[in-house]
């Protein structure tokens, strides 16, 4: 494999790591997502969300 391709793949691996960490921080730490009641989700648009209890 040429050097440029190696750099591309190494960058991809780094991006994936960053992405996983960012996802962890967003969801597991900041809890930045909504919990949705099924009935509301099916019947209503836009979706009504219930803020997660802290």
């Amino acid at each position: 494999m040429d050097k440029a391709s190696k750099i591309l793949f190494a960058s991809l691996v780094v991006f994936i790591c960053i992405s996983v960490i960012a996802t962890y921080v967003r969801i597991m730490i900041h809890k930045d997502f909504s919990t949705v009641d099924d009935l509301e989700h099916v019947s209503a648009e836009p979706v009504t969300t219930i803020p997660i209890a802290q």
Binding site: S11, A22, F33, S34, V36, D37, D38
Partner: peptide, 18 residues
């Protein structure tokens, strides 16, 4: 690359059905 960077955003998963 754009896909990997968009994964952590709300464009991927923004909620969970309880």
């Amino acid at each position: 690359t754009p896909f990997i960077f968009l994964v952590p955003t709300a464009l991927n998963v923004h909620g969970v059905l309880l």
